[in-house]
Design a protein around this nucleic acid. Structure first.
Length: 587
RNA sequence: UGGCCCGUGGUGUAACGGUAACACACCAGGUUUUGGUCCUGGUAUUCCUGGUUCGAAUCCAGGCGGGCCAGCCA
């Protein structure tokens, strides 16, 4: 069912609490499902998926794989004003890119609109739901507060006949948006606000991506979700902890329907909702709504901008599904609030890329090197290993000539302590080429180094030292004559603070759910740096999506903006840099 | 004098009444034609106070701290 195998954990390995619950359920046949495990991943198609969803996807699909069950992909499409076919398509691309398959089990909450409608009538007939004429504002005011009970709607006592009539007329489109709702009749004094006569249906005259104009009343999440689970025969409905307080309502609806003799078309058992803590990452926000703010504000180029924590953004940045799955495995599943360090995500990425990314040489900040004793006009080809971690990756040839580019950082006129690279008098290895010794440098009027002069040792061809001589540094280079130009995009966090909403003077919250304060002041103005680099000729064949390690620098991914003769590379993640650490410590 | 959830190294996650472990991060060393990879070693943890128990991270009580909830969003 899925490529990703989460069942490969060694015997006796720690099991997360969700799996403990499931194993207990299987052992005791708690839900009467006879050991079946059927889960679902239920995104609302109103935006792109992000890495927080990856955690949920890995859990939902991984759990199904682990227990020999299956996982349904279900579009939770109950709000046509926000949902689009474009998002449905993007979600499917992302889930399968991550490595999971749902087979025939693709569903939509909208598939169940007729069944949900019939069940709503059942509840009305049983006196468990009523049509309410209160405006949204009035509903809000009569709901009470966190500490005081709500007051019953004046329409709460409507007769079954009147409710049936009104509900039918809501469905036929007789009333405008917002005129009436169908509400569950539970308890206006319940300490859990979700139980204070929650709205089951609202009137929305809108075009639905799948049902078109067929409906003008749409079920709310709470009414749709549990019933959808039940209809599909889901055994374990895993979700964000935020829904834990909705669980009593999830169970209430099921209780009522079962008591009224309703039957799931697919299950003799009922689903069980269990909640886990969502993933948080520093320097970003994992919120679909925020993504649109960033795009609309022009802070990123789109939902798939490589700085975005969306799966499409990470993909464009160069992340691999394997790395993301490994990450999701390592962060574990629990209920406490968590913020995972970037270091772990990047570790998973580097570990994967190290094994599979071919190496290449590229110079990001070029400075010219002239090998004074190298014959003018001569060109040699040197063998370069494509991937030292993977002998099967083979070798390629890299051209060498008298004038080269090296990284500006790889030369220092007056070397800092422990600096092993090029400085006057010092000898280093040019990777795969020769040992060279620096003789001098040329500077412009501003004191900037414009040219480094060296001599090479012909006996060290290929970078070998027949005399056993050691050099402490090997640096990368490209031949000036053969180098290609490339646009390279360097990325940093989108925000300068771990918590982008951490602002000095918060203003009052503009709306429920939207934190106060202006996150815009925490935008990192340097989250994108575009430079022109010199790259080795073999990189001319790079196609969008191809991943490389530019030796000694970072992993890079060829961007879709690449055009013939105009390659574009995204820095995916830098290599670990011990030298940078030494410099940083020195201050 | 609202409800729900949660407190274990720097960050995560385990340990399910019996020596607090694993990963990442950090520090030190070794190998190396990438200051990468790899290898070796090290620092560092149970929110507090009581109670139960031979024995408590685990059970109980009371504190303290954090998160979430008042959409006709999901």
């Amino acid at each position: 069912m899925a490529h990703a195998d989460s069942s490969s954990a060694p015997a006796g390995a720690p099991v997360n609490f969700i799996h403990q619950i499931i194993e207990e359920d299987i052992r005791t046949n708690a839900n009467g499902a006879n050991g079946q495990v059927i889960t679902r991943f239920p995104p609302e198609p109103n935006a792109f998926l992000h890495i927080g969803h990856a955690k949920a996807i890995c859990l939902d699909f991984g759990t199904a794989v682990k227990y020999g069950g299956r996982c349904h992909l279900r579009m939770d499409d109950t709000n046509p004003v926000k949902e689009k076919q474009e998002y449905i398509d993007a979600i499917k691309v992302d889930v399968s890119w991550l490595g999971f398959e749902w087979g025939d089990h693709e569903y939509h909450a909208s598939d169940y609109f007729p069944q949900l409608y019939d069940w709503a009538i059942l509840l009305i007939k049983a006196g468990k739901a009523y049509v309410c004429d209160l405006s949204p504002d009035e509903v809000s005011r009569t709901r009470g507060t966190l500490t005081t009970p709500g007051t019953p709607s004046p329409f709460r006592g409507r007769s079954v006949e009147e409710n049936l009539d009104l509900f039918a007329r809501m469905k036929t489109g007789e009333f405008p948006n917002g005129a009436r709702t169908l509400r569950a009749k539970i308890d206006m004094a319940a300490p859990n606000l979700n139980l204070r006569d929650p709205v089951m249906y609202r009137i929305l005259h809108a075009e639905h991506p799948r049902t078109g104009q067929a409906w003008c009343i749409y079920p709310m999440y709470d009414w749709a979700h549990g019933q959808s689970d039940w209809i599909e025969g889901i055994t374990h409905s895993l979700c964000d902890q935020a829904y834990e307080e909705h669980r009593p309502l999830y169970d209430w609806f099921l209780d009522q329907l079962i008591a009224l003799g309703a039957k799931s078309p697919n299950a003799r058992y009922r689903p069980k909702q269990r909640e886990f803590a969502r993933l948080n990452l520093p320097y970003t926000v994992l919120s679909k709504r925020r993504f649109l703010d960033w795009v609309e504000g022009g802070f990123v180029r789109g939902l798939d901008d490589p700085r975005m924590p969306t799966l499409s953004g990470l993909r464009r940045r160069g992340y691999t599904p394997e790395a993301i799955r490994d990450f999701c495995e390592r962060i574990g599943v629990a209920k406490r609030e968590n913020v995972i360090e970037y270091a772990l995500l990047e570790h998973c990425l580097r570990e994967d890329l190290n094994k599979r990314a071919p190496r290449a040489m590229a110079v990001l900040h070029p400075v010219k090197v002239v090998i004074d004793n190298y014959p003018e006009g001569q060109v040699e080809q040197f063998d370069a290993v494509n991937n030292p971690e993977d002998p099967a990756a083979g070798k390629r040839q890299v051209p060498f000539s008298k004038v080269l580019y090296i990284e500006r950082e790889d030369f220092m006129e007056t070397p800092a302590p422990k600096y092993f690279r090029l400085y006057p008098g010092n000898e280093v290895r040019l990777r795969y080429a020769y040992l060279v010794r620096c003789t001098s440098c040329v500077k412009d009027s501003g004191g900037n180094v414009t040219e480094v002069h060296c001599t090479y040792d012909p006996a060290t061809r290929g970078g070998n030292t027949p005399d056993g001589r050691k050099v402490k540094a090997t640096i990368h280079w490209v031949s000036a004559l053969h180098a290609l130009d490339a646009e390279v995009r360097l990325y940093d966090h989108l925000f300068t603070k771990e918590d982008p909403d951490d602002v000095p003077a918060p203003v009052p919250a503009p709306a429920p759910g939207i934190p106060g304060g202006d996150w815009r002041q925490n935008i990192n103005p340097r989250s994108l740096e575009v430079i022109q680099a010199k790259i080795e000729p073999s990189l001319a064949q790079a196609k969008p999506g191809d991943k490389y390690q530019f030796e000694r620098l970072a992993y890079f991914c060829c961007d879709p903006d690449t055009r013939p003769g105009k390659p574009v590379f995204n820095r995916t993640v830098a290599l670990k840099d011990t030298w940078a650490r030494i410099e940083k410590k020195r201050g």
